[in-house]
Design a protein around this nucleic acid. Structure first.
Length: 422
RNA sequence: GGAGAGAUGGCCGAGUAGGUCGAAGGCGCUCGCCUGCUAAGCGAGUAUACUGGGUAAACCGGUAUCAAGGGUUCGAAUCCCUUUCUCUCCGCCA
């Protein structure tokens, strides 16, 4: 959520920056609702001030008849207040609802563009493997090795659900542990294991609600949602809190499954593990001082990249342009791995700085100094990495002519010493 | 699922025959004093949001907040209702 006062004072600037996202965002409703709200607020508050004075007076009065007179008057005032407050409540709800649907303003440094095609490549790393044969896509590799069972996954649940078997399941688990160990042991993150379902407040805090409810799995009987990413529970850990400035930055890493409806992606990536309703992810989350949040973003990105470097898998980093950036983000880098079986780069991580957009929604603040006024923190997060897609990358990049798959060196301790599948 | 208890400021904890309670007291913290150092001691200060004025600062005024929402009342932390959460006992259960 954007700062009301900031919008009020910089309406044109804010609107212009939002326009670079390409959406038809208009702040016209804001001007009217905000003005009306302040008008009603002032009416209500001055009447309340009057009533408070009168109430004190009544308490002090010895003369009963005088008190009666005042009471009668105040009875009327209270009725007036009630009327104004009812209207005020409606206006405030409308204003709030409106503001919650306005996306974040992209950071001025974010490149302006319309779509994915306009995302500049920041760097590429590693050599793409060369093959003496035609490399296969991971779904073929996985099925032939008997480690990925798409048919039975679909039988159990439906499309976009997969059953892992044997060393396939082991590989997924190995990657999760490898990533968690790396980030906790070498990158200074604290491991968290949060609930996999959260309430409406948490979803609103990070920006999934109210706008994107159709992408979420909602439970029947209770108002809970399955998390689409660990970003939601982990960022909300400090919802409504005031943190100590000296504790920042706070770094958390969490493994969770993620559940997404993938509404609107019918027919896209229907084969393989790329787009599932349920997938595993190791997520990095930071709470940072606004002064250093963009340094932290670079670190977070480097921490995520390190996973692929250790695995020896080629990738590139792109910076998302204003037209491609997410609703809550001010700046985002995507890491894309090279998939030889499909001859393309695919997103495997998305690292973003949200500035104070989520912090304002979720009420996450800090005191820069002991006695200082609380300010909103900056929140950041990024995948470190999407586990299913990492399995894809390993299978496709390490496939051999005989159909087997080599296990990257760094992963072998996590595979019980297994060096090769098949 | 059944029965009961509770939810107050950073923390602990008073306050229930409704009024001057944003809220005693303690701890913690900040500043000053004292002290050879530390500890102890003494004094002062120590919530947040919105809003009006003011030079977007300092500052001054108003309103709200004692889990959340509603009700009674001139007036509610205190009374009534609903919801949420926590704890105890029973049942069920990985």
């Amino acid at each position: 959520m954007l700062d009301i006062k900031y919008i009020r004072e910089n309406l044109e600037t804010v609107e212009a920056r939002l326009k670079t996202r390409g959406e038809g965002v208009s702040l016209a409703p804001f001007r009217e609702l905000d003005g009306r709200r302040r008008e009603l607020l002032q009416q209500s508050e001055s009447l309340k001030a009057m009533r408070n004075k009168a109430s004190e007076e009544i308490a002090r009065l010895k003369d009963k008849s005088q008190a009666e007179e005042l009471k009668t008057k105040m009875r009327e005032v209270s009725q007036q207040i009630k009327g104004i407050d009812e209207e005020l409540k409606v206006v405030e709800e409308e204003l709030q609802t409106f503001l919650l649907t306005v996306p974040n303003t992209p950071n001025p440094a974010t490149p302006v563009g319309k779509s994915e095609a306009d995302n500049p490549v920041v760097r590429t790393w590693g050599d793409r493997p060369s093959f003496s044969f035609q490399p296969k896509p991971h779904w073929e590799i996985g099925e032939e090795l008997g480690i990925l069972d798409f048919e039975r996954g679909a039988k159990l649940t439906g499309a976009r659900f997969t059953l892992y078997r044997g060393l396939g399941a082991r590989l997924e688990r190995a990657l999760i542990n490898f990533m968690l160990d790396l980030h906790t042991g070498e990158h200074n993150y604290i491991e968290m294991l949060p609930p996999f379902m959260v309430n409406r407040e948490s979803m609103t805090g990070t920006g999934q609600l109210p706008k994107f409810e159709e992408d979420l799995f909602h439970l029947e009987g209770v108002d809970f949602f399955l998390i689409p990413t660990a970003e939601v529970p982990v960022t909300n850990i400090h919802r409504g809190e005031i943190l100590k400035g000296s504790d920042l930055p706070i770094n958390y890493v969490a493994y969770t499954p993620c559940f997404r409806k993938e509404a609107g992606s019918y027919g896209k990536d229907t084969r393989g593990l790329i787009r599932q309703h349920q997938f595993n992810k190791v997520e990095l989350v930071k709470f940072a001082d606004p002064a250093t949040s963009y340094d932290e973003l670079e670190k977070l990105l480097a921490n995520a990249e390190e996973v692929l470097r250790r695995l020896g898998i080629s990738y590139r980093v792109v910076e998302l342009c204003t037209g491609d950036i997410g609703f809550s983000a001010a700046k985002t880098y995507d890491i894309e791995v090279w998939l030889p079986g499909q001859e393309c780069y695919r997103e495997i991580s998305s690292c973003s700085c949200f500035e104070d957009f989520q912090a304002r929604r979720a009420g996450i603040r800090f005191r820069p100094e002991e006695k200082a006024k609380p300010e909103f923190v900056h929140t950041l997060n990024g995948s470190g990495l999407a586990v299913g897609r990492t399995v894809v990358a390993v299978l496709e990049n390490y496939q051999q002519a005989d159909g087997s798959v080599l296990i990257p060196e760094a992963l072998r301790p996590y595979m019980g010493g297994v060096e090769r599948i098949g």
